[in-house]
C-alpha cells in the first residue's frame, strides 16, 4: 500500500469540499478519482500533496511522490529550456534526458516561451517534467487536458508503463472513456463524498439495467416516453426471470451520480 486516506475532511468556509472520504492506492496500481465538476477531486489531491491543509482525517504516504496540477501554468515568461533546467535542480530524481526526448517527440521548441505554447503543448511540457521524475507515486490532476486523441493515447500508454516498474498512479479525470482504458480501480466522487468505489471490471459486471413500470430498488437512469423507467440495479438484487440489459460504465456513472434512488 502506497497511499492510505482515511476520513479526510476539508472545509471551505462552512461548505465541506471533501466530506469524510477514504481510499487506498496499492503499489503498481492506477487509481482514478472521477466525478462531476466541483465534486472535490482536486481538493482531495491538494490535501494529499500538502498544498491544502486538511481539517481532519489521516493521510499516510509510503514513499516519494510528484504532482501534476490541474492548471498547467508553469512560469509563462520562461523558455522551455529554462523550465527544464529548473526541474533539473528541484525535481525528484529528475531524468533530463527522458524529458528532452518527450519534448523532441512532440516537437516542442526548447527556445519557445511557455506563454506561446498552446494548451495542449503546455500540458505535454508539464507532463514531460513530471513523468521524468523517478518517484513511487504519480499524482496527476487531469493529465490529458487539451490533448488531441492520438497524443492522449500515447500519454495514457506512458502513464500505464510507469506501473511496469512498480510505480503507482493516482489521477483524476472526467473523461470516462479514458478512465475505462487506464484505471484498475476507481472512486466516483460527488459533493465531497465517495459514492462508489471498486475495481472497474467488478463494477461493470455487478450492475444491470432493468426496464420497469413499477418503482424498483435502484438508481433511475431514464424515464421512457411510455412512462416506463430504466433502473440501474445491482445484479444480485434482480429476481430471476427479470430481463436484464447490459449496463456500460457510462450508464453506471450517470445513474449513480444523478442519484435518484428508489428504495422500496
Amino acid at each position: 500500500m502506497i497511499l492510505r486516506v482515511k476520513d479526510l475532511k476539508k472545509f471551505y468556509g462552512v461548505k465541506a469540499a471533501v466530506d469524510g472520504i477514504g481510499f487506498e492506492v496499492e503499489k503498481g496500481e492506477i487509481f482514478a478519482i472521477l466525478g462531476p465538476n466541483g465534486a472535490g477531486k482536486t481538493t482531495t489531491l491538494k490535501c494529499i500533496t500538502g498544498l491544502r491543509k486538511k481539517d481532519s482525517g489521516e493521510i499516510e504516504l509510503n514513499g516519494t511522490f510528484t504532482y501534476l496540477p490541474e492548471e498547467k501554468k508553469l512560469y509563462p515568461h520562461l523558455r522551455v529550456k529554462e523550465i527544464v533546467d529548473l526541474f533539473e535542480k528541484i525535481g525528484k530524481n529528475f531524468n533530463e534526458k527522458n524529458c528532452l526526448e518527450i519534448l523532441e517527440r512532440y516537437r516542442i521548441d526548447l527556445n519557445e516561451k511557455v506563454t506561446n505554447l498552446s494548451h495542449g503543448m503546455r500540458t505535454i511540457l508539464y507532463l514531460s517534467l513530471v513523468l521524468s521524475e523517478n518517484v513511487d507515486l504519480y499524482i496527476l490532476d487531469e493529465p490529458t487536458w487539451g490533448l488531441d486523441p492520438i497524443v492522449r493515447n500515447e500519454i495514457l500508454d506512458h502513464i500505464r508503463s510507469l506501473t511496469f516498474e512498480g510505480k503507482s498512479v493516482l489521477y483524476t479525470s472526467h473523461v470516462l472513456a479514458e478512465v475505462e482504458k487506464i484505471a484498475d480501480r476507481v472512486a466516483i466522487m460527488k459533493e465531497g463524498k465517495i459514492i462508489l468505489t471498486g475495481n472497474l471490471d467488478d463494477i461493470k459486471s455487478s450492475y444491470g439495467l432493468v426496464v420497469s413500470k413499477k418503482d424498483l430498488n435502484g438508481y433511475l437512469l431514464k424515464t421512457l416516453k411510455s412512462g416506463e423507467k430504466v433502473y440501474l440495479v445491482e445484479k444480485e438484487e434482480i429476481p430471476e426471470g427479470v430481463e436484464i440489459e447490459d449496463a456500460t460504465f457510462e450508464d453506471i456513472f450517470e445513474a449513480i451520480v444523478r442519484g435518484e434512488r428508489n428504495d422500496r
Binding site: 472513456a177 475505462e180 482504458k181 471490471d201 467488478d202 461493470k204 459486471s205 447490459d246 449496463a247 456500460t248 460504465f249 457510462e250
Partner: peptide, 11 residues
C-alpha cells in the same frame, strides 16, 4: 472493447 459492459479480463 473498453466501453463494453463485459469486463476487460473476461474479454
Amino acid at each position: 472493447d473498453f466501453h463494453s459492459s463485459k469486463p476487460i479480463y473476461e474479454q
